[in-house]
């Protein structure tokens, strides 16, 4: 079964991560392209197998080295919390036994073009006055 088509994305519209930071589901359908980003991948195992790649878009953001060093673990844990919440609240996934792997991080940018990607969803990671696009690319299958 295709997980992406059956997921209830509305299950997690907004999620507070800490005071001053939250993740918000983006509903606009504008295409998104990123050349500067960092990524984290989570593997799922159990009754759902596959991966979720999460990309934090840093294009046109004026961020110094210190802030980047702070941002990276923040983003990684935020994605862990978001995925955990999605799995635990989505009507289909919450009934399945799923193991989530520790995050696997990549600091090298790659070109992200939403027109060329399928099975994606876009969130905003809001940290104080900063607002970052976050692209989730799902490649998940329910194992019968």
């Amino acid at each position: 079964m295709d997980v992406y088509k059956n997921l209830d994305w509305e299950a997690v519209e907004k999620l507070k991560i800490s005071s001053g930071s939250k993740i918000v589901l983006k509903r606009d359908l504008n295409f998104l392209r990123s050349e500067e980003n960092i990524s984290v991948q989570f593997l799922l195992d159990g009754e759902v197998k596959g991966s979720v790649d999460c990309h934090l878009c840093l294009d046109n953001k004026d961020i110094d080295e210190n802030s980047r060093n702070y941002l990276y673990p923040y983003f990684t844990e935020s994605m862990n919390i978001l995925l955990g919440r999605l799995i635990s609240t989505d009507p289909m996934l919450s009934a399945l036994k799923i193991k989530l792997s520790p995050p696997k991080c990549t600091i090298y940018s790659k070109t992200i073009d939403s027109r060329l990607m399928s099975e994606l969803v876009v969130y905003s990671l809001v940290i104080n006055d900063f607002d970052f696009d976050v692209v989730l690319n799902l490649n998940l299958t329910v194992i019968n």
Partner: peptide, 9 residues
């Protein structure tokens, strides 16, 4: 503590 909070977890 865990990000997953399903009953089986």
């Amino acid at each position: 503590i865990s990000s997953l909070s399903q009953e089986h977890v």
